[in-house]
Write a protein that binds this DNA or RNA. Structure first.
Lengths: 192, 192
DNA sequence: GTTGAACCGGAGGGGTGCCTCCGCTAGAGT
DNA sequence: ACTCTAGCGGAGGCACCCCTCCGGTTCAAC
């Protein structure tokens, strides 16, 4: 809610109703949905989400006519936060800034896997989210490439998928996840 | 059905009924389930699976009393095939044998993600499958380590999760998946 | 060929989720 | 303060799924 610097920020803002009570319900639904999707996966019950949010099922459907619409809003909200995070690490050293942001990215992916999976396939909003994400994180990667720290024969998209895939997997503990991520990032780093 | 060299092979064999018609139905159900799970994810309809297999729903329940039991059988069957694959590559060079098998592993994971996810959590059969998988693929990795090709500060479990995570992710095309996998494996390979 | 045990199919009861529709409520503008 | 419109909740119809149960069928052993 600070500086809406990315296109994705406008999406959620545009959907939020103006009336006070309606806006409150909108926020509660988004939060409840985020929670339910993280907990029960992509096919969490919409009636359960409405219940969690403390609103009627009708209110849910008025704000989000389809299940997909709800997914898109939750996802866009999430991506927006991630974009803001990129701004916060921008003043560190190239490689460290990149890995710090990827770390945050990995953290989001653990819980958000359900939403992303459901949105797989065409979706206009998904495109905007992708663009925002690339606009936010891409420069970090390119800076690392120009500093000779990241290999030049891959692009930011390759990197994101790699991190997303690994971080969405089930590990015995967080330590193992970090270890594996570090090894894979070793493949990204330029050899000396 | 060639050489049942791994403990997992015994699991499916033990469940298969002896009467001719019953065995046929059992096989049809397993195939239908594999298909349905790959297509619709972990919560595919059991009635739909019975329909695909051309048997009554009652027959499905007789062979697999719970959804979990069905998952376990499908998964065990799959793992068995993967174990056999490890034997087939054993006579190649250390690093090449390892990557060839991982390639096969990745291929299975793309479609089998649903099953693995549903089985997440405790399950005796899952333990046996894991053991068989390690018995089959582990030696390939250790051989590569001893040949000085793979880094010594990780174990086979780390490697499998890494490949599983990446290969289960959605990519724009198979080429990108292969590229990303290769980069990550670069992190596994010993630096010269 | 006979027989009985194992196996078969699917109807049906109970449960849950999806989505629409409409009588009621409360915020926002004057 | 008044109004009127945007917004609210949830009952209810429909669809689908889970799982049990039992009368009929088929295999295989003798």
């Amino acid at each position: 809610m600070t500086t809406p610097s990315f296109p994705v920020s406008a999406i959620v803002a545009a959907q939020r109703p103006h009336r006070k009570d309606a806006a409150r319900n909108f926020d509660a639904l988004l939060a409840a949905a985020r929670e339910a999707f993280a907990e029960n996966g992509a096919d969490a019950s919409l009636e359960d989400i409405a219940r969690r949010a403390g609103v009627g099922i009708g209110t849910l459907y008025r704000n989000f006519p389809t299940r997909r619409a709800l997914f898109e809003s939750v996802y866009a909200d999430e991506v927006d936060a991630l974009c803001q995070a990129a701004l916060e690490v921008a003043d560190r050293e190239p490689w460290e800034a990149l890995t710090a942001w990827l770390d945050r990215f990995a953290g989001y992916m653990v819980t958000k896997r359900a939403v992303r999976e459901a949105l797989e396939g065409e979706s206009e909003i998904l495109g905007v989210c992708r663009d925002s994400m690339y606009a936010a994180g891409g420069p970090l990667f390119e800076r690392a490439q120009q500093a000779g720290e990241a290999r030049p024969d891959m692009d930011f998209g390759d990197l994101l998928r790699m991190v997303a895939g690994i971080s969405a997997t089930h590990f015995t503990d967080d330590e193992q996840r970090d270890r594996v991520l570090a090894i894979a990032l070793d493949g990204v780093r330029t050899r000396r």
